[in-house]
Structures are given as C-alpha cells and as structure tokens.
C-alpha cells in the first residue's frame, strides 16, 4: 500500500468521524443529506460483500466493517433518532436519488469486468459512489450557508478522492499489471464533482470567512 492510498483511506475515515462528531455533539444533522448517506450505505453494502469471499488483509477487512457500520449508524440516526431527525432539512433534500441508483445499476449491467453477481454489484457500487455526493452538494447549494463541520466533512471526502487519484497514478507507474479503468474513470468523475465546492472552500479559507455557496 502506498502513501497516497493510505492518506486517501485516512481522509475518508476522518470525514466520517467528523460527520459522526457533528451529529453526536450538536444532536443535529442540519445541512446533511440523508439521500447521500443512504447512497453511501448502499455503496458499501454492495461493494464489501467480498468480505465473505476474498481476504486481502486485516486492514482491509476492518476498514470495510467500519465503513459499513458507520454509514448504517448515520442513516439510522437521521431517520430514527428522536432528537437528531428533527433537524433534518427534509424540504431541501429532494434530489431524486432513486434515479441515480437505477442508472448506476443499468450501467453496471452493461459495463463490468465480468458478468457475475459480485462483479456487477462491484461495478454498481463504484458508479454509485461517483455520484452519491450529488444530493449533498445540491442541499448545500440550496441552504447557502454551510456550517463548519459540514464544510469540513465534504472537504475531507473530496480529499479522499484526490488522494485515490494520486494512488492510481502511482500504481500505474510502479506496477506492471495495474489497469483498473472502471475505478479510474469513475474516480475522476467523482473528483470533478467536487471541483466547484473546493473552489468556494478555498476562497472562504483564504479570506478567513464563513463558507458560502452562491445561490
């Protein structure tokens, strides 16, 4: 495992911890899209079915379990927690996420490495992860003001994607048989979706002001 991959995993983990911290400390999930969180839960469940079929390393297995458990915990809090669910911006979170699921499933049936159950689900999870942030970005755009922890959460998620791209570039040059174009193309699309957010994040950071997205 190279340093970029490790930093990618760590920033991914940090983003989830920030989100859990926000929900736990403020007992509020305002500014967080339940639809994006549901999509991530689905992404992890679909991709990490290989927990039962392939063993890579203790690190991989532990991270997979952490990602599945944390994403389910977040969805549970936002839907069921007596206090937390009251702060959910339901009327702002109206993205039709089922269309994303349907489109990604259709694409996975058409484009995958091998037409087997696990391979189709794996490709589906990669495609879905690439677009899962969309409801979250739309919600932030609509509410305009972004609180600190929510801003950090999205920033670290974006950093995770950026590190994974560096990881693929590194692997491409250091490994003889590294070809993973499904991950790479999807990963590029996913990172590009953050470009706009990053732009405003850096402007607010430079001016030392609150993060605001244009209406």
């Amino acid at each position: 495992m190279n340093i970029f991959r490790f930093l990618g995993d760590m920033t991914h983990l940090i983003s989830i911890l920030i989100l859990l911290l926000k929900i736990y400390a403020t007992k509020s999930c305002s500014g967080i899209s339940l639809k994006t969180q549901e999509l991530y839960a689905l992404v992890f469940l679909a991709r990490y079915l290989d927990l039962f079929t392939d063993f890579i390393s203790v690190y991989n297995s532990v991270m997979k379990v952490v990602f599945i458990a944390s994403s389910l915990a977040i969805v549970w809090c936002m839907r069921r927690h007596r206090v937390v669910r009251r702060s959910y911006d339901k009327e702002l979170d109206t993205f039709r996420h089922y269309f994303l699921v349907a489109a990604c499933l259709a694409l996975a049936l058409l484009v995958q490495e091998k037409f087997t159950f696990l391979e189709v689900l794996w490709a589906f999870s990669i495609y879905l992860e690439a677009v899962a942030i969309l409801p979250q970005l739309v919600l932030l755009q609509r509410s305009g003001n972004v609180d600190n922890l929510t801003g950090q959460y999205v920033f670290f998620l974006g950093a995770y994607r950026a590190f994974y791209i560096l990881n693929w570039i590194y692997r491409y040059f250091t490994e003889t048989h590294f070809s993973r174009w499904i991950s790479c193309v999807s990963g590029l699309v996913q990172t590009a979706l953050y470009a706009d957010f990053f732009y405003y994040y850096f402007i607010s950071w430079k001016n030392n002001s609150k993060l605001q997205l244009p209406a």
Partner: peptide, 10 residues
C-alpha cells in the same frame, strides 16, 4: 493468465 484484477482497494 487471467485478466482478473484483485480488488485490494476500499
């Protein structure tokens, strides 16, 4: 040789 790629990333 198989062209299967080990899914060693998360």
């Amino acid at each position: 040789a198989s062209n299967e790629v080990t899914k060693d990333e998360l």
